[in-house]
């Protein structure tokens, strides 16, 4: 090939890439270097994580959401300061007993060399998966995905307490609430707020640092949609290798 021919070819530098292509390219880069998740996030298989994320994409393409509204939450991880106002609000709003939680904050340490480390707080809750393992395993359909909103809901009167859903959940999002004789879980405050016209979950409202962003992913104008679909933003989910297709996304910007 001659120099002239080379010049006629399409440039391979990033300037000619569409934003989506650039994003995919970046993902691969991060996946390869293992930086994608900034270490391992819940999953112990970071390579698999990265692969799951970059090959299939953890965020479905715009317009490919099975529900409308397709409720989801975006967690701006680095901003979380573990003040636990979200937990308190959740407990109050949903009558969560002292031994349980619907949402909680995990803490991880990211080594900065020597004895120094950076603390990262990770809020976790039900991921309202598109392919929820808990729903599949329930023998009495006491839990299901709400047809309109995609929220994974519980019907306490049907729960026989076999706890298979708890074993099946990759996110430790379920617990057995003895008082109600049922497995209990986050429902994005569907019962306590959304169904009564209050359009944010209690934890979102309580967060002073704007960590938790809630909204309809299927609406391109919504903040959640814009956050996860902005080309420069790295988006990750927890334990993508389980194939559950979670609807709780994590970002740092």
């Amino acid at each position: 090939m001659k120099i002239d021919d080379l010049e006629k070819m399409e440039s391979e530098d990033v300037s000619s890439l569409s934003s989506v292509e650039r994003r995919n390219f970046l993902k691969i880069g991060f996946a390869v270097t293992g930086m994608y998740l900034g270490g391992s996030v819940l999953s112990l298989v970071s390579v698999k994580n990265a692969h799951g994320a970059s090959a299939s994409g953890v965020v479905p393409e715009l317009g490919k959401y099975p529900y409308n509204p397709h409720y989801s939450m975006v967690l701006r991880e680095k901003l979380c300061i573990d003040c636990e106002r979200c937990k308190d609000a959740c407990v109050k709003t949903n009558n969560v007993p002292s031994y349980g939680f619907r949402t909680t904050i995990l803490e991880k340490r990211h080594s900065l060399g020597e004895d120094k480390y950076e603390t990262i707080f990770v809020p976790v809750l039900c991921n309202h998966c598109n392919r929820p393992p808990c729903v599949r395993v329930c023998p009495t359909t006491a839990t299901w995905k709400d047809e309109k909103t995609g929220i994974v809901v519980m019907e306490p009167s049907r729960c026989i307490g076999c706890k298979t859903c708890m074993a099946a959940c990759p996110y430790n999002a379920r617990y057995f609430k003895e008082e109600a004789r049922t497995v209990d879980k986050c429902d994005f405050c569907f019962q306590s707020r959304l169904s009564k016209g209050v359009m944010t979950p209690a934890c979102v409202e309580a967060c002073p640092a704007d960590v938790r962003v809630f909204g309809n992913l299927a609406d391109p104008a919504s903040r959640v949609s814009q956050l996860v679909h902005s080309p420069e933003t790295m988006v990750w989910v927890l334990r993508p290798e389980t194939g559950a297709i979670p609807n709780v996304f994590y970002i740092n910007s």
């Binding site: 599949r136 329930c138 023998p139 009495t140 359909t141 006491a142 009167s157 049907r158 729960c159 026989i160 307490g161 076999c162 706890k163 057995f176 004789r181 049922t182």
Partner: peptide, 15 residues
């Protein structure tokens, strides 16, 4: 936990 809900539950709401 709630064995009494099982007999009817598995018939009326099978999965």
């Amino acid at each position: 936990e709630n064995v009494w809900r099982m007999p009817l539950g598995v018939i009326l709401h099978p999965n």
